[in-house]
Design a protein around this nucleic acid. Structure first.
Lengths: 405, 405
DNA sequence: CAGATTTATTCCGCATCATTTATTTAAGTG
DNA sequence: CACTTAAATAAATGATGCGGAATAAATCTG
């Protein structure tokens, strides 16, 4: 039970101020007053403390001052160098790592083309550790200057406990990855989270859902991911467990039995099904070269009936799941992404049709489905954002009490 | 954006104190300190204000004082007469209304055996208004003494706006029921909510989920309802829209197309399917008398293959939906209720099997499925609780500022 | 039975915090 | 040089929570 005391009060208001600066910065103090409904005195006190602590810098207004009369505003912004964090994302075929500054600008990044699933957990952790150390060095920093690390992993992750409950990458379950990494990184605090959660936060902070307090993110990668932002907070299950869209259930197109959605609509299942469908043709070769997805998209554009049917089935299964999620969450926006969606309509059109057909009239128009392609480093920026979010709310140096002098 | 000021601080702590008294009362101040982590001083100040306002009463410890030495504790409890509220529930075949005191003890209740769906909305509202006025009079109270009214309705309800978006009871959509009722009840504030939400709150306050912060409630009535308690709060969609389990989608047993879950597993669909299956037999008569559900359960116990198959299909469809909900919410408990479940295993066994079969290993043991029969007035108590919850958190007389003397 | 002990509750003084209301300083414009 | 807006600063007010001292009301002890 969280009781209220003056310290909590300050923490809340300081968070509001930092959030305003992050979202609207560079921003003048007056405007922070307007946006937060805090008094000028309070804003001045808080920003003063933030300046003392070096979390915020002033940014003299050099440019356009049209029709402004009195004393010019002093703009405040987050100090990019106030802290640095590392974000990483473990994908089935690569590990992407980025070091960012306090504003989540990428300072250095690297990608290790590793098939993580082929290695044991200790080896994978070795690789992550080495990658992080390298990436920190590339940014011209010492590990001790890093305020936090967040690693995104596909699957079911219990962030609070730092345990990876289940992942397509690892055979084992309940791996205490966060503790393991923290130990290896000389005590730099490492956290883990579901990879979709990272991209969800990234969309919220930097992307298509900026300022939107409710939306869903569906990622069609090798596995299927689901991120939910609900009332401005990442939604997690009862124990802080991230949900796994792939574990949702669907009936296969032939109508017999029930299967995990991941076995119809994930990239992995698409590839194996497509490979089977194209076996013996000239196209099969591409799969061996690891260019399967490109080939699938190419054949879809060419109108190959087997591939089109495959993508249609996947789209319908996803549409089914998304329709149900819309019933539950009524989100104004649903963001879809993943290589399989890049091709345009082969998968997306059946998906949209299915959603439209299945939604009850009362919910017909609430959700806007958009496809958003992600660049490589959005994952890492999300991971950085996840860490920064904690940092912004954390007690920091003298920022707790008011400044004496 | 909610900024923090001393008033908010007080409101938070006052809520904690009231919640402790509600949950554990009669309770001594010292124990409130333990349970809330507030200082003795603060608890004393807050309880003092609550006593002044008459929301709380002292309850001299008369009984067992085994091995207690020092100054005896003074037990505090909610003042049952501090306020009165009315809860109502509109079911397809009846309107149940209860007047309760501040502790949600039912002081008077009545049931109108009305088929609500047969009437127009204005007529239905007439009936509700008359019922509420009657029920208030039965409790020996004036309408002006009622602090709030909450009405539970099946379907999709937007509580904040007081609008019933869609309901099986009414053909119309977007009915501004709350405003209408408030106006008719001489300004007594009326709110509406999904009926399952009421029973979910009732389970949380009084029932099987007391003290549990995450659980699901699934009601199989004429329609299907879903209530979600997540982190101690009722879960609502983006606009405060309650989700409707019946709007979730399932594939029918024959595997063709997709249908609303309500058309497989609701009491309504069960009845009509069973009636069709038993057409021409001696059993058909029962349906005409409105005793269809009893007949269905009787035939199920007798092992009638058509009926057993029907219930199995319903159980499997529900199990499918519940398994998906468990994937999303990972609740430690799922409470099922409704007449159709009363029969024991014909429906519940396939449901449990389906859930067990479909859950991924990582979630296999998280959720405990229980069947809980509800008495008639649990709905009304839930409605009362919904109003009381607002009352507890509301600024109240002099309770806002500290007491002067 | 008077005083010691124990436990619950209240009172007092202190520190923090936000707010309001000036007052002052800064840095411009006209 | 007057005027305007931004911002920092100061002082006063009021609300809050907290820790420690004081008080209250019982039981225990000799």
């Amino acid at each position: 039970m969280k009781t209220a005391d003056p310290e909590l009060m300050r923490a809340i208001n300081r968070f509001h101020v930092m959030d305003a600066i992050r979202r609207f910065g560079p921003i003048a103090r007056v405007e922070i007053c307007d946006r937060t409904d805090l008094s000028a005195t309070t804003v001045s006190a808080i920003t003063g403390a933030l300046l003392d602590d070096g979390l915020v810098i002033t940014h003299q207004l050099g440019g356009i001052r049209d029709a402004a009369r009195g004393r010019p505003r002093v703009l405040l912004d987050l100090n990019p160098d106030a802290a640095h964090v590392v974000g990483a994302r473990i994908a089935p075929d690569r590990i992407t790592i980025a070091t960012t500054n306090f504003r989540a600008d990428v300072r250095a990044s690297l990608t290790l083309p590793v098939r993580v699933g082929r290695h044991s957990v200790p080896v994978a952790v070795d690789l992550i550790e080495d990658g992080i150390r390298r990436c920190v060095a590339d940014a011209g920093l010492e590990l001790s200057q890093i305020s936090g690390v967040c690693v995104g992993i596909p699957g079911v992750v219990e962030r609070g406990a730092g345990i990876c409950r289940a992942s397509p990458l690892f055979g084992e379950r309940d791996i205490p990855l966060a503790a393991e990494l923290t130990q290896r990184l000389d005590g730099v605090v490492a956290t883990i989270d579901s990879d979709v959660n990272l991209v969800t936060l990234a969309e919220h902070w930097f992307g298509q859902a900026r300022g939107l307090d409710d939306f869903l993110v569906v990622s069609v990668e090798l596995g299927l991911g689901l991120g939910i932002l609900h009332k401005g907070e990442l939604f997690r299950g009862a124990n802080g467990l991230g949900p796994d869209l792939g574990d949702l259930l669907a009936r296969p197109p032939n109508g017999n039995g029930l299967v995990r959605l991941a076995s119809i609509a994930s990239e992995e299942s698409l590839l194996s099904d497509a490979r089977a469908a194209l076996a013996g043709t000239e196209h099969e070769h591409a799969f061996r070269l690891g260019r399967g997805m490109e080939k699938v998209l190419e054949r879809a554009k060419a109108g190959d009936p087997a591939i089109v049917a495959l993508l249609r089935a996947a789209g319908e299964a996803l549409g089914f799941a998304i329709a149900n999620l819309i019933v539950l969450f009524a989100p104004p926006k649903v963001i879809l992404a993943g290589p399989a969606l890049a091709a345009g309509d082969a998968l997306v059109a059946p998906l949209r049709e299915t959603v439209a057909a299945l939604l009850p009239p009362s919910l017909a128009d609430v959700a806007d489905l958009v496809v958003h392609e992600w660049t490589e480093d959005i994952w890492a920026r999300g991971a950085a954002a996840m860490t920064l979010r904690d940092l912004y709310g954390a007690p920091w140096g003298t920022t707790g009490p008011a400044p004496h002098r």
